[in-house]
Design a binder for these strands. Structure first.
Lengths: 320, 320
DNA sequence: TATCAGTATGAGCAATTGCTCACGAAACAA
DNA sequence: TTGTTTCGTGAGCAATTGCTCATACTGATA
C-alpha cells in the first residue's frame, strides 16, 4: 500500500500548500492554480480538501467568539432552543451584569413584533434588572402575564415582582397575579386558583409565546427565604429533600425533577410553561446558582438560557 | 472618550459575531445579515472587519513535506536546535508573510508553559508582524524583556519596538530598554548601561530562556539606515568593512563574525544571548536578507531559525 | 484486446462575495 | 443657522467561488 499512502501524502501536501496560499497568503484560486500548475478547478478542490480534512483551523480571538461557542455547545448538550452567553466580568460581583442587558435585548426582539404575542414573566432580582434595561416602547398589541404572585406573606407587594415595571415600560396590557407565591395550604392554593380574577391569567400564562424567568438557588441564603416566602425550617426541609433550586417557587432536585410535597404542594404560581412551541428562557448566572441552572436545563424545565461565560463553562464541564 | 470606546467595542463585538457565524458556523453573509438584522453589505463589512482587525486567525495544521525536509536539513547543516520552514508565495512581496504567523505560533507554545519563563525580544518589522499574530493570553507568570532600545535618534519611540505590543497581548511583566539603539559614543554606551534602570534588564536578558529576534540586512536600504539609527556614511563604512547583516544593531560579516569598531563600539543593545540552554530564534526570510541569515547561522549567532522555503533552499545551496 | 468500474478533470453555471460609487445622516465649524 | 466634512449605508456590478455534469483516463478483468 506504499504507493497509495505516498499518493495520499502528496495529495494532502498539495492541499496544504493550496490552503496555505489561499488562507494565509490570500491568493485567489486562479493564482494558486497558476502557481501550482493546475487548473482552477483543481485548485478549488485542493483548498476544499484542505478544509474538509481539517488542515485549516480558523479561530476567533475575541471574547464574543468564546461566548458564541459556549452558547452553541449549551444548545447541543442540553437540547436548548435558545442560548445566549455574555462575557464574564471577573471583577464584578453583580449577579445580573450582562445577563440583564442581554435579557432585555431578547425581550425587545420579541416585543418588536407587530404580531400580538403573549409574554410570560417570572420574578426575581435578575428579571428586575433586565426590565430596567428594557427601552421604553409602544406595544399595545402584546400581553404580558405574570407567572407568579406579588403578595408577600405580610400582605405587602413583593419588591421583586416585575410585571408592573415591564407593563409600564412597554405599554402593553398586563396581567398580574394578585396571589402569594406560596399559599398556606394546598387547599388555599386550589381556592385561590379558582378565583375569577386568577383563572384567565393562568390560562393566558399557559399559552404564552415566550417566557422569561429567573432561577433561584436554595442555599442558606436562598432568595425564597430572604424574601420571606419560606421559613428557615421550610428551607432546611427543602434542602434535606434534595432541592437545589427553584423557579417561580417550584423546587426541584439536582436532576431537575420537581419535588413532591413540602412547599411544592402549596406553590400558588402558574406552572412553568411547557407547551410545544413555547420558548421558556431562564436568566441566571453565578456560581451560587450554577447547580440550580444545571438541574433546570438537565430536567428540561426551561428550553432557553441566558447566562455568562463562566457559568456556561461550568455547566458544560459539570455535565460532561 | 467613553462613547467612542463603547462604539468601537460594540463594533468589534458585532464584527466578531459576524466572523464567528461566517467562519465557524459556516453561514453565508446573507444568512448572517438576516440573523443580525442588517443588510448583506453590512454583514460583509463586519466579516471583513473581523479579518482586518485580526480577530480571525487561520492556521494550517499540516507540515508540508518539503518544508519539513528543508527544516531538518537546516538543522543538520548549521547545527540549529530549532528550525521551521513555511511555504513561499512567489508572488508576494511581503517580507513577513508566513514567518510572522509561524513565529507567533512558536511564541505561544513557549508562553503556554505554566513554569515562569523569561522571553527576550528584539525589534524589527518581522517581529512586529509576528506579535500582531499572537493571540491574547494571560501570562502573568512570564517576563518579556527587550534586548534593544526603543529610542530613535530624534528622541521619539522607535516604531518597530515591539516589547510593549507583546506585553499588551499576553499580560506579562515587561522590561523595556529606555535606550537608543546606538549610542553616540562608546563612553555614552557604558554610562547608559550602568544606569539603575538598565542593569537589571540586561541581567534578565542574559538569562532568557528563549529569544526571538529579527535579522537586518546591510544593503543600501538597510533597515538600520532607513530608521535613522545609522547615517549613510556609517552604513557605507559598515559595508566597506565587510558587514552583511545586523542583529539588534550588532553588525557581522559574511562568516558571522562580529565587526570590531565602527558602530559596534557604540551599540547600546544587550548582547545576543548565547548561554548554554538559551534558545535564540531568528525570524527572517527573503533574498535580500539571505546573506545576513546565512552569516548568522554560520557564525552560530543564533541557534534557531524560522524562514520560508525559498530562503531555506538558498541557504542550503549557498553553503553546500 | 475489449470492457467496465472507479476516479480525476475541465467546462459551464449559479451562488456568493468584494468593491465602488453615490446618497444621506450625524458631527463639526463658521 | 448654514455650510462642510466625515462616516456609514445600500445599490449595482464585477470577480470569485462552489457545484454539477459530461468526458477522459487508469487499471483490472474476462
Amino acid at each position: 500500500m506504499a504507493p497509495k499512502r505516498d499518493n495520499n501524502n502528496t495529495r494532502l501536501d498539495d492541499a496544504a500548500r493550496a490552503g496555505w496560499l489561499y488562507y494565509i497568503a490570500g491568493n485567489t484560486q486562479d493564482e494558486i492554480a497558476a502557481k501550482l500548475g493546475v487548473s482552477r478547478q483543481s485548485a478549488q478542490r485542493m483548498v476544499s480538501l484542505a478544509v474538509t480534512e481539517g488542515l485549516v483551523k480558523v479561530r476567533l480571538d475575541h471574547p464574543i467568539a468564546n461566548c458564541l461557542d459556549l452558547a452553541s455547545r449549551l444548545k447541543a448538550q442540553f437540547g436548548l432552543r435558545f442560548a445566549e452567553v455574555v462575557p464574564t466580568d471577573p471583577a464584578s460581583s453583580s449577579t445580573t451584569l450582562g445577563v440583564a442587558e442581554a435579557g432585555a435585548e431578547e425581550m425587545a426582539r420579541w416585543l418588536k413584533s407587530s404580531e400580538p404575542i403573549v409574554m410570560a414573566i417570572g420574578t426575581g432580582r435578575t428579571l428586575k434588572a433586565a426590565i430596567e434595561q428594557l427601552s421604553p416602547m409602544e406595544c399595545p398589541q402584546h400581553k404580558v402575564v405574570s407567572l407568579t404572585g406579588n403578595i408577600a406573606p405580610d400582605g405587602s407587594a413583593a419588591f421583586y415582582n416585575v410585571i408592573f415595571n415591564i407593563a409600564d415600560a412597554i405599554h402593553a396590557r398586563s396581567f398580574p397575579m394578585p396571589l402569594p407565591v406560596i399559599a398556606s395550604s394546598p387547599e388555599e392554593r386550589e381556592l385561590l386558583h379558582t378565583q375569577a380574577m386568577i383563572r384567565p391569567v393562568l390560562e393566558l400564562a399557559a399559552r404564552a409565546d415566550v417566557t422569561f424567568l429567573g432561577i433561584g438557588d436554595l442555599g442558606d441564603d436562598a432568595p425564597l427565604y430572604l424574601d420571606g416566602f419560606v421559613s428557615q425550617a421550610e428551607l432546611k426541609a427543602l434542602q434535606k429533600a434534595g432541592s437545589v433550586g427553584e423557579i417561580l417557587g417550584w423546587s426541584f432536585d439536582s436532576e431537575g425533577r420537581m419535588l413532591e410535597g413540602l412547599t411544592n404542594e402549596r406553590v400558588a404560581s402558574a406552572p412553568i410553561p411547557s407547551g410545544g412551541n413555547a420558548l421558556v428562557i431562564a436568566l441566571a448566572k453565578g456560581a451560587k446558582k450554577q447547580p440550580a441552572i444545571a438541574a433546570a436545563v438537565k430536567g428540561r424545565l426551561v428550553n432557553g438560557l441566558i447566562t455568562d461565560e463562566a457559568t456556561a463553562a461550568a455547566l458544560l464541564k459539570s455535565e460532561r
